[in-house]
């Protein structure tokens, strides 16, 4: 198999050029989707038969939780690429994704707590789903702290990549915790194999919000990655020309 395309893909300059074209689209589409989805979910969706209006927190909680886990999976993928192919761009991606992932992980935990109070009667329980999500938060913080603690870029890249890879076992635990154990947290509403257990007039804004949040993540990641490229490639001629 010919892997040259893979290395071309990892060229920072190539990425900088192409991402500049995507950015405006990502910005407009993601923000429009989020606004439409949240206004729909807040004002136009019917209330839930059991939870009343407090269920409307789902339109943030679920997209944030999905993102917190997906971003980690992407970081683990970038970590594998960093370790195997030593592609600089992969390590830059790993670095810039961590703060975004941590923000959505916190959003997921906080909205979950706010939702838990009126529905379950408590802000927090140490059940398997909530605890594994908290571990994910600590993994994110650990990866960010590790990079801050190591000053050589090369060594930091390697250490962060290994920690990211090791932590990825937590992702299936989060996903299946509600099936494997008796948790207070309910099972998944959106399933790959079955019909979602949600009325369509609630499901549509939720799906829109999920797509909007993912695009928003991509947009923020591209923004941050471009800055990281400028910072790390500052000695190259094209960055000097770009900046001056």
């Amino acid at each position: 198999m010919n892997w040259t395309f893979f290395h071309k893909l990892g060229s920072p300059k190539w990425f900088y050029d192409i991402s500049g074209k995507w950015l405006p689209w990502l910005q407009v589409i993601s923000l429009v989707l989020i606004v439409v989805a949240l206004v729909w979910g807040l004002a136009f969706s019917p209330s839930d038969y059991l939870q009343g209006n407090s269920y409307r927190i789902i339109f943030i909680h679920v997209p944030a939780s999905f993102l917190a886990q997906s971003v980690y999976l992407m970081m683990a993928t970038a970590a594998a690429v960093t370790l195997i192919w030593k592609i600089k761009l992969a390590d830059m991606a790993l670095k810039v994704m961590a703060p975004i992932g941590v923000s959505f992980c916190i959003l997921s935990l906080v909205t979950g707590a706010i939702w838990g109070q009126p529905t379950w009667g408590t802000w927090w329980v140490w059940d398997a789903r909530l605890t594994s999500m908290l571990i994910l938060l600590f993994l994110y913080i650990g990866i960010i702290a590790l990079r801050g603690a190591i000053h050589t870029t090369e060594a930091a890249a390697k250490a962060c990549a290994i920690l990211s890879l090791v932590g990825v076992v937590n992702i299936p635990i989060i996903k299946f915790s509600v099936d494997w154990w008796n948790t207070l947290h309910q099972g998944a509403t959106l399933k790959l194999t079955e019909k979602p257990s949600m009325a369509p007039e609630m499901l549509w804004p939720l799906l829109l919000a999920i797509v909007g949040f993912y695009l928003f993540f991509m947009m923020v990641m591209v923004l941050r990655l471009r800055i990281e490229i400028i910072s790390r490639e500052r000695k190259t001629r094209w960055v000097k020309e770009l900046v001056s």
Binding site: L38, G52, N53, I57, I114
Partner: peptide, 15 residues
Amino acid sequence: MGGHGFYVWSAYAFA
């Protein structure tokens, strides 16, 4: 929000 205003709005504000 049917009495859940504090919860819903604080979650959205944090988001």
